[in-house]
């Protein structure tokens, strides 16, 4: 495989950082994006010295107007063509709908929906048709199941599911492959690790480490898989979902919700 250049959003921690490490390991160059003061410089320096790849960084707020254009203006100035786009950055939530402000939801939708759409559009505009390009959208199993307290997050991931499916049809016959990653829980940020630590049984089996998910996802992306679901337990959930009647699923979720109330 030739040496490619990958844009990764939200690259400073969690799954984004794991994508950066995984792609650098495979010898690809990186353009890492995240908010300022998140240690992106240290990560890039580490990847350059460890894997002899080029790692550019851009510290910016992706929800600010014009930042998507700013990224591709930077690339063209550097005479860089991106071959891989990983739409990873996102904001989660686990609150009753009225407990968050409108500013929060605005930002969440900007980052989870608007940003990947704009980046995908700009990425396709600069893609080199002579080589295969890849887009990996980070969705969630939450995009498949209706879970209270995840209303906007889940809806944004459902959006990504529709968007990816539809783009896959539009991209048929082109040299661009688009994949959807639908992970269960991932041990990323401290508060999430703490929550995941308390899980038992099958719920525990749906939890993965970020480096494992990244490895499985990048493998799937290069194979051109339409949807990547890491782990047998998660695959089982998706399989059950396809024939369980709606009222059974609702009952399970409502039961789960009682534990958290």
């Amino acid at each position: 495989m030739p040496q490619l250049t990958a844009i990764i959003t939200g690259a400073s921690e969690g799954l984004g950082k794991a994508f950066a490490i995984e792609l650098a390991k495979r010898g690809h160059n990186l353009v890492l994006l995240s908010l300022p003061n998140t240690g992106l410089g240290n990560l890039a320096a580490y990847l350059q010295k460890t894997f002899d790849v080029k790692a550019d960084i851009l510290e910016l707020d992706l929800t600010a107007a014009g930042s998507a254009e700013q990224i591709f203006t930077y690339l063209s100035k550097q005479k860089l063509t991106a071959h891989i786009l990983i739409n990873n950055a996102g904001i989660g939530n686990w609150d009753w709908f009225t407990d968050n402000s409108i500013a929060f939801y605005k930002k969440q939708i900007d980052l989870n929906i608007t940003t990947p759409v704009l980046l995908t559009r700009l990425f396709l505009g600069q893609a080199d048709t002579a080589v295969t390009s890849y887009i990996l959208n980070v969705g969630s199993l939450g995009g498949l199941f209706v879970v209270p307290k995840k209303q906007v997050y889940g809806a944004s991931k459902s959006f990504m599911r529709y968007f990816t499916r539809c783009m896959q049809l539009e991209l048929t016959g082109t040299n661009v492959k688009m994949s959807l990653l639908s992970p269960g829980g991932i041990n990323t940020r401290p508060e999430i690790i703490l929550m995941n630590q308390k899980l038992k049984g099958i719920a525990k089996a749906t939890i993965f480490e970020a480096d494992e998910v990244a490895r499985i996802a990048i493998d799937g992306m290069f194979k051109g898989k339409k949807e990547i679901i890491p782990g047998a337990a998660n695959k089982l959930l998706v399989f059950l979902n396809s024939f369980l009647p709606g009222f059974v699923k609702d009952a399970i979720i409502k039961g789960k919700l009682k534990d958290h109330a």
């Binding site: 490490i21 390991k25 580490y46 480096d211």
Partner: peptide
């Protein structure tokens, strides 16, 4: 470590499966 010896500025490159390492990291936070 993946290649060179780790320095203070280097990131962690794998997950925190080991309870001691995980909780010592939380303590640093």
């Amino acid at each position: 470590t993946l290649k060179h010896p780790m320095t203070e500025d280097d990131p962690r490159v794998v997950g925190f499966q080991i309870a001691y390492e995980r909780t010592k990291y939380f303590a640093e936070l």
